[in-house]
Design a protein around this nucleic acid. Structure first.
Lengths: 185, 185
DNA sequence: CAGAGCACTGGCCGATCGGTCAGTACGGTG
DNA sequence: CACCGTACTGACCGATCGGCCAGTGCTCTG
């Protein structure tokens, strides 16, 4: 793995667990076995390092929701399944965006992230939904994000097969978000 | 309201929305209309300011779970209701602990917070529960915390009566955590 | 009035932050 | 050999951080 990729991996892990503001370029450099100056050689700034880490996940999410926004057709059960797969694929980016998105919305890439979350919410017509429906949405996605973030504390790392986690999350989200009659909206 | 209390209120709001690390004593002082030095006159350190903000909520939580731990009797439905009331009472502390607890566990008061969360989890026998039960717990409490933290973005502030929020959260948590047959464990 | 004590302040400290820059080692390439 | 671009570094910069301290007004009390 190139130093460039290694720096991205180290920074992602630190940003997700310790927080963006609390993670210094110096620390990233030491963990990757190089110098702070070399970090800023590979990435123009700390913000651009964050952007390069988060953007791929946002691109995937945008590709997931764009066709749905275009046609207006959303089959919730299908969407939930593809969404869970996306969350698991970018399991470290999820808590980073969820936990720190609000505090970092002055950073362009994080603003884009929160904007995408808003668009996902609109897919579920939450803007016009009832109070409990809005809350269901918040609990569902916030809950999944927190669970992924707190995986260590809950003992979900390593010992539990990823497929079990996937099917469990699917069941929980399905219960929360998919009405008894599968509808298209 | 005394300056002491006003500083606590301002700091709580900033810690919860912008983050502990990202909130400087200087900013707290300006928002409260005083000087940074006066903040450190009222509170020995930034950490102690955080402790004084978070501790009351932790005390309430401890009082809630201590008798249950003592007798070993937990009626989930009752507990969920009292827990939701506690979350709503300390609605600003909740996202502070949930979102930043992991990154600040070197701060004693935050370590106590995560330790209390672990004890709550044990009340639900999550340590020995199945994978999906562990995940249900994480999704439920993480989800509620995220929802309270993201209340602004979801449009839950002001326009929706607090009683509606309360009953909606109760219904959602009840669905997630209380088995069909109300049991004592 | 003298003086003790509380509330508060400006100015300073060392540490650390993100970021810049001149310089260096080195593997091609002509 | 000279030359160049890439990868990388140590030293340094201004800004900001949490925290410290001497000093200042103000109020209350003997």
């Amino acid at each position: 793995m190139s130093l460039h990729d290694q720096l991205r991996a180290v920074a992602l892990a630190e940003f997700a667990t310790a927080g963006y503001a609390a993670t210094s370029l110096q620390r990233i450099a030491v963990l990757a076995g190089t110098s702070k100056a070399s970090v800023l050689y590979h990435f123009a700034s700390k913000e651009q390092l964050l952007a390069e880490i988060v953007s791929p996940a946002l691109d995937d999410l945008e590709q997931l929701i764009l066709p749905i926004e275009g046609t207006g057709g959303l089959r919730r059960a299908d969407f939930v399944e593809r969404f869970v797969d996306l969350l698991l694929l970018h399991s470290q980016v999820v808590p980073l965006v969820i936990n720190q998105g609000a505090t970092l919305d002055d950073v362009p890439v994080m603003h884009r992230a929160t904007e995408l979350m808003r668009r996902v919410a609109e897919l579920f017509r939450l803007a016009s939904g009832s109070t409990i429906e809005k809350l269901r949405f918040g609990v569902a996605f916030g809950g999944v994000a927190y669970t992924l973030a707190a995986a260590d504390r809950l003992g979900l790392n390593g010992e539990i097969p990823i497929d079990d986690v996937r099917s469990a999350l699917l069941e929980i989200l399905h219960d929360l978000l998919v009405p008894a009659d599968t509808r298209t909206a």
